[in-house]
């Protein structure tokens, strides 16, 4: 056994308040920050903390997640020993008959945990944007001699990430029918549980994405240089799937202010306070303000967009106007075409 961490990512979570963006994908695969998907932050934090074995447990709509993660190569997790493991739900899991029972899901793969060489496990979620150094969390956990260490934000908010011995995780999963625990949260919130729970306070920035509002808010926060530098420090890169896009091309008459723009875009219009993903086209005379435009969005001449979230592959036709508000940004679904005054599915 070695004092290393096994990374376990719960990609089964979904939030009703985000469903407009989760029609085609699971939460872990939600595009975020101009070129990433949410899972990139936890995956990269794990890899940057020296974690060499990462297991991802998706539940529904995980095609885009599988495609994104691939062999794990982009996170340097395509290894002969350890590396990336994907564990979709099994029939066994289904036969247990209980929805939202993460321990059932883990139980279908209990052999994996038995075989793991890592003495400790990190149970993490896929919807927290942060760059936590888990090495420090493990050190604190070992020092404190607690059974379970829970990571919390400076303001005390639990981040739903836990460090415990892999052997304890295995026994929690195996005894789930006796204890009634469905997941680690149940263990933490059970005041009668026999386990010592400690907390680790994370000093840095950590934001949870659980609604359209929080998705929009955290995205816009990235436009503040201090937030940008906090999430993207030079020595802890966020890895993601490589797309080989050309650098972004700015035309003769564009006007871009306070925006984050990924590669492969062609910008000829006005862009203010916005996040532009890879391969977006914004035509001359179009105005995009306070908005998030996902991959390959195409915004034609004379459009006016304010406080809008465009999912992937949307087309906004000439002269269309879309307005949301800070509290209720307007969401246009994947692949939609917006004409002047009409939203159409093609």
């Amino acid at each position: 056994m070695n004092k290393n961490l096994l990374g376990v990512i719960d990609a089964t979570t979904t939030f009703h308040r985000l469903e407009q963006l989760l029609g085609h994908r699971c939460l872990a695969a939600l595009p975020f920050g101009g070129r990433y998907r949410l899972v990139d932050f936890i995956m990269s934090s794990m890899v940057n903390s020296g974690i060499k074995s990462v297991a991802v447990f998706p539940k529904v709509n995980y095609r885009s997640l599988m495609d994104h993660l691939g062999s794990g190569k982009n996170w340097d997790l395509n290894r002969k020993r350890d590396g990336l493991f994907l564990f979709p739900p099994t029939l066994f899991d289904k036969l247990q008959g209980q929805e939202n029972n993460y321990f059932n899901h883990l139980a279908s793969y209990i052999d994996f945990f038995y075989r793991s060489r890592q003495e400790y496990a990190l149970l993490a979620n896929c919807f927290t944007v942060s760059i936590i150094d888990f090495k420090k969390v493990l050190e604190k956990h070992i020092q404190s001699n607690c059974d379970i260490t829970q990571i919390v934000r400076k303001d005390g908010t639990p981040l739903k990430m836990y460090v415990l011995k892999t052997s304890l995780l295995v026994s929690l999963v195996e005894s789930r029918k006796i204890t009634g625990y469905r997941n680690i949260d149940d263990v933490i919130s059970d005041i009668g549980s026999p386990y010592d729970i400690c907390t680790y306070e994370y000093e840095g920035r950590a934001e949870m994405i659980d609604s359209i509002q929080s998705y929009y808010y955290v995205s816009m926060e990235l436009l503040k240089p201090e937030t940008w530098l906090n999430f993207f420090p030079e020595n802890r890169p966020i890895y993601t799937k490589i797309m080989d896009e050309a650098p972004t091309r700015y035309g003769k008459r564009n006007n871009v202010k306070n925006s984050m723009i990924a590669n492969g875009c062609q910008i000829d219009g006005t862009v203010e306070n916005s996040i532009i993903f890879r391969g977006v086209k914004i035509a001359e005379g179009a105005v995009v303000k306070n908005s998030i435009i996902m991959q390959r969005g195409n915004i034609e001449k004379g459009c006016y967009l304010d406080s809008v979230i465009l999912d992937k592959d949307t087309k906004i036709k000439r002269g269309a106007i879309l307005k949301g508000s800070e509290r209720h940004p307007q969401v246009i679904g994947k692949g939609m075409v917006v004409l002047q005054g009409a939203v159409m599915r093609v």
Binding site: G33, G34, R35, L223, P225, W228, F231, F232, P237, I238, Y239, T240, I242, D244, T248, V256, K257, N258, S259, M260, I261, A262, N263, I275, I276
Partner: peptide, 11 residues
Amino acid sequence: NPNQPPHYISD
């Protein structure tokens, strides 16, 4: 690929 975030254009 050098794994850098999107570029930032300020005010």
